[in-house]
Simulated scan of single mutants.
Amino acid sequence: MFLKISSDIHLEHLSVADAPALYEAVELSRANLAQYMAWEKSVADVSGARAYIKSRLTSGLDRAQWFSIQFHNQFSGVFGVKSLDRDKGVCELGYWLADNARGNRVVGQILAVMIPYLANEQGVRTIEFQCLENNFASIKIIERAGARLLRKVSNTLDIPNKEQAIGIYSLHV
């Protein structure tokens, strides 16, 4: 699947063949990713990138879909519909962005396309996000999309600053 977001951004279904590009993006963005993404340590080589991708593609979560983010035709991160419960009309979205695309409103543009798609084509009424409380850039993106903080839960991720909670955000569409 190829989904054009803008002239500079498109999404493609994530595949194991993306492992070398994913590893390169992680390697170039490791300092930023390490602050918020516990999986960053496991992507220490292309084999680790393959395992990361396989774990997403075989998560077993209802209707999960994972995409590579392509910015200027370069692998620039991952966007996921982590789960989608059509009966309840709820889905969870997640993403990470490589340094080569940061500061360009890439995720905001993706959300501007995906949120209406999920609402109109998939019957989603509520979109949820999880975000570490010190990840101010990500919080700004999801709040700009209209999501609001519902509650905070304890952080069990293996990251620096473990004392920060995880915020659960919700957007009603």
Score class of each variant (00 low, 15 high):
1 M>H: 11
4 K>A: 13
7 S>V: 09
8 D>R: 15
9 I>A: 01
11 L>R: 06
12 E>S: 12
14 L>E: 07
15 S>R: 14
15 S>L: 14
16 V>I: 14
17 A>L: 13
21 A>S: 12
22 L>S: 03
23 Y>Q: 08
25 A>Q: 10
26 V>K: 09
27 E>A: 15
28 L>Q: 12
28 L>N: 07
29 S>K: 04
33 L>S: 02
36 Y>T: 12
37 M>F: 13
38 A>C: 09
38 A>M: 13
39 W>K: 07
39 W>M: 07
42 S>Q: 09
44 A>T: 01
46 V>R: 07
49 A>R: 04
51 A>H: 06
53 I>C: 05
55 S>G: 13
56 R>S: 08
56 R>Y: 01
58 T>M: 12
59 S>C: 15
61 L>G: 02
64 A>I: 05
64 A>G: 09
65 Q>R: 14
66 W>T: 06
66 W>K: 04
68 S>Y: 05
69 I>C: 02
69 I>E: 02
69 I>G: 02
69 I>V: 15
70 Q>H: 11
71 F>G: 03
72 H>N: 11
73 N>T: 13
74 Q>G: 00
75 F>C: 05
77 G>T: 11
77 G>S: 02
79 F>E: 09
81 V>Y: 01
81 V>T: 04
81 V>G: 01
81 V>D: 02
82 K>A: 10
83 S>V: 01
84 L>N: 05
84 L>I: 10
85 D>V: 02
85 D>P: 03
88 K>W: 09
91 C>F: 01
92 E>G: 06
92 E>T: 03
93 L>Q: 08
99 D>Q: 13
103 G>T: 05
104 N>M: 01
105 R>Y: 09
105 R>L: 11
107 V>R: 01
109 Q>C: 11
110 I>N: 03
112 A>E: 11
114 M>G: 04
115 I>E: 10
119 A>S: 12
121 E>Q: 15
121 E>C: 08
124 V>C: 04
125 R>Y: 07
125 R>P: 00
126 T>W: 08
127 I>W: 00
128 E>T: 08
130 Q>F: 04
130 Q>D: 15
135 N>H: 15
135 N>Q: 13
136 F>E: 15
138 S>Y: 11
138 S>M: 07
141 I>S: 11
141 I>Q: 04
142 I>V: 05
142 I>S: 01
142 I>K: 07
142 I>G: 03
145 A>G: 04
147 A>N: 09
148 R>A: 04
148 R>E: 14
150 L>C: 11
154 S>T: 10
157 L>W: 12
157 L>T: 06
161 N>Q: 14
161 N>F: 12
162 K>A: 14
164 Q>P: 00
165 A>G: 03
166 I>S: 05
167 G>N: 09
168 I>G: 02
169 Y>Q: 00
169 Y>E: 06
